[in-house]
Each structure stands twice: as C-alpha cells, then as structure tokens.
Design a protein around this nucleic acid. Structure first.
Lengths: 211, 211
DNA sequence: ACTTTACAAGTAGCACCCTCTTGTCAAACG
DNA sequence: CGTTTGACAAGAGGGTGCTACTTGTAAAGT
C-alpha cells in the first residue's frame, strides 16, 4: 500500500482527493497548470496572471485550461490547496520524524514552517491571509481561511494524542491553538531566525507539557 | 504627588509628554480635536475626515486646527498615540491591581485588551495594524507599528521584574513575547470570549512560570 | 487667541473610452 | 476522444481629462 513518504492517516483525511501514487486519469494537464500558475504568482503576483498567459506557458490552448480547471477562481483555490497540502505535509513529517520527542517535533514543525514561508512567498501569503493579513500577492482568499488553520489544528491534535500528554483535553486544545497562533504570528511578523523562534516556542510548549 | 489612578513609573517613561493633571498650557483645543477626530474615524473612517469638517465639529476655525495639530499626518499620529496610551494604561492598571498574583494580572490584562478592541474599533485598528493586518479604518500607520508593541513589551517586562519569576531573563522575554503575540492574534482573529481566551493565555503563562 | 479671507499646489472623484480578460460555444482537427 | 481554433457577449481593468475639494501657508482683521 505504502510506497514512499506515506503520510499520516490523519493527513489523508484532511486532504480530500489525495492519492500519493496516481495523479488521477483525466487530469493530465491539471498538475502542470497549477504548478505553473503558482510559479507565475510567486514571480509576478496573482493579478498579472491571465488564463491565456498560463495556457501559453504550459503550451496548451486556453480552452484546455478551462476544461481542466474550470475558472480563475477555481485555479486560485487549487493553487492555495496545493500550498496548504505542502504546509500540512511538512508539519506531518516533523511529527513522524520524532515519535518519542513531542517537544522536538513541535520545534521542527515550527522551524520548518517558518523556513518555508521565507522562501515560498505564496505559502507566506496563504498563511498570512489565514491570520488576518492582506497580501498583494493573493487577493483571492474568498475561501475562508479558517479551514486551513482548522486542518492544522486537527492534524496536530491527532499527533499529540499519540504521545502521553498529562493534560486534560481542553488544555491540550489551548496548547495546540497557542502553538499555531505563535507560528502564524511569526509568519506575519518575524522577530528572529526560524530556529530561534522555534526554540522559544518549543520551550513554552515544554513547560506547558511539564514533561 | 499622586492624585488618582497614578500610573506605574514605567508607564510615564513610555508615554512622552504624559502629565496626568495638567494638559499643558497652550493646548486648549488639542484634546478636543483629537477626541473628535477619533470619533469621526470610528464612525466614518479616517479617509472621510477633512480638517474643515473637524474644525466645524469642534466649533473652531480651520486655522486653529492647523495651529494646534500641525498637519493631518500629525493628527493621525496624535490619535494613534492616544489610543496606544489607553491601551498601555489598561495593561498597566491590570498589573497594578494584582501585585501578588502575576497570573491573575496577565489574565486581566489580556481580557481587558480583548474587551477593549471589541468596543473600540480604532484601538482594534491600531493593534491589528501593529500585527500586520490592514484596516480600512486607518491606512496611515506610517509610524512603524513596532514601537507600540515594544512599549507593551517593556512595560510588561518591567512589571514581571516586580514578581519573583524563577526563570532566566531570555526565557522571560520569550514568555512576554508569547503573551503579546497571543493577545494580538486574538485581536485580529478571535476564537472565543475575551474571558475564555484570557483564561487560556493565563493557563499557559502559569505553566511556563511553574509557580 | 482666534477668525477670516485668500491662494498655490496637489489630490480625489468622475465620466468616458478603449482595451484586455473572462467564460462559453460550436465546429474543426489529429 | 482530447485538443485546438475562432468567435462571441459581458464585464473588469486601465488610461485620460476635467472638475471640485482638500491641504497647507500666509496675511490682515477682531
């Protein structure tokens, strides 16, 4: 069943239509189009994208773009979804990598996210938007951003339940919420290197967990 | 010396030109003008304000406004400063009210801020802007917003030093930073009542302090 | 100490036009 | 069958020129 980089069970359920090996049947161009759109967004900003330019870039007719994607709004959603997927996958991997070190997992997850948004302006835009900030890169978060955060919340919560956490459920929720908010806060308003910030967050988490 | 609601010594140093009893000599209209401007901003938004309207509202000539304030940019700064003053004063008061209960002080300060931004859209705008969010109410935060946060940071840190905190300095800084970021996060993106949120933050702080 | 009047410079809004883009269709192609 | 092509209506976006208002300063008036 699992070939490589098998995601956590919870991750699959959070990413509808997620199938590691096969990208589907009819969608030959879909992935290429979304990737190229993300690239164009990263370089020139979302508003410079036109369906014609995108089609040209991929080497396909404009009609094919509409057949594969549907509309420009759906293109945006697909792009965002793709970034969110990467975001969640990174967080997931951090937890998978530290099965017996919860604090270490949190530190790595936080540092990973903070590093990622530094080099990936699109992911930065998506996460910023999910936290109230506006981005010139992506004025299209019509899709309420809270689902993104909720997904991260659920994912982390699931992972936490795999460790022995001596806290009642409501307190664990508060902790998870805190970690997410702190990371997002440092996404929009950084105050140090990803590693320094992740260390601070890990310290706080460690004290709260009282391990 | 102290007549009423004497602020913490540190608060005075953070608010240049702050003198509780006397509002100064020449500035007869200044306070009225700033208050009225804040009111107009709250109701109609900053961009609807004109110096003429403001003068009319207060019942003085337009020239007087320029004499008292200087320019529209300075009006904005004065307004923001006034809100920041209220914000810091509230935080300060919370700590003064709990000289022997640090966690309680943090809870009250957090709850107070979260309650205040709910009823005061201008303060909401100022604090949101200090955290990366844009506001239609106030597109004038030319003054880098970080000083506001820095002031809060210094103020809280000063208060914390009055309690016995069994942590090294860098860790206390991390804690203060966390509390501020969490509160600001809930300013831009609330997730419950001010009291619930404040409880969660207080819980986290308590665990970190390991009291 | 405040008002009034006057003024230059700059900005904001508006109506207009033109262009480009979106989204859809049907027909043609390999 | 998937893809392309050309054509199309509707509408969004981007300039332009104009007017009206606003800012900021200065003087003289009360």
């Amino acid at each position: 069943m699992s070939t490589e980089a098998t995601p956590h069970a919870g991750l699959r359920s959070l990413l509808p239509g997620f199938a590691p090996g096969s990208a589907g049947s009819g969608s030959t161009w879909r992935a290429r189009l979304i990737a190229e759109a993300a690239d164009l967004t990263r370089s020139g900003g979302w508003q410079t994208i036109t369906m014609a330019k995108l089609a040209d870039r991929v080497g396909v007719s404009r009609q094919t773009v509409y057949n594969e994607i549907g509309s420009k709004q759906e293109l945006a959603e697909a792009m965002v979804m793709h970034e969110v997927e990467g975001f969640l996958r990174g967080v997931d991997a951090s937890f998978e990598a530290h099965p017996d070190d919860l604090v270490g997992a949190i530190r790595e997850a936080a540092a990973g996210v903070l590093r990622a948004v530094r080099t990936n302006p699109l992911m930065h835009a998506v996460l910023s938007a999910s936290h109230g900030a506006e981005s010139d890169l992506l004025p299209l978060l019509t899709t309420e951003a809270s689902p993104i955060i909720d997904a991260a919340r659920v994912l982390i919560r699931e992972h936490l339940d795999a460790y022995e956490v001596p806290l009642e459920s409501a307190r664990i929720d508060a902790l998870v919420d805190m970690v997410i908010r702190l990371v997002l806060s440092h996404v929009t308003t950084p105050s140090g290197t990803p590693e320094e910030t992740a260390d601070d967050i890990a310290f706080i988490a460690e004290r709260v967990l009282a391990l």
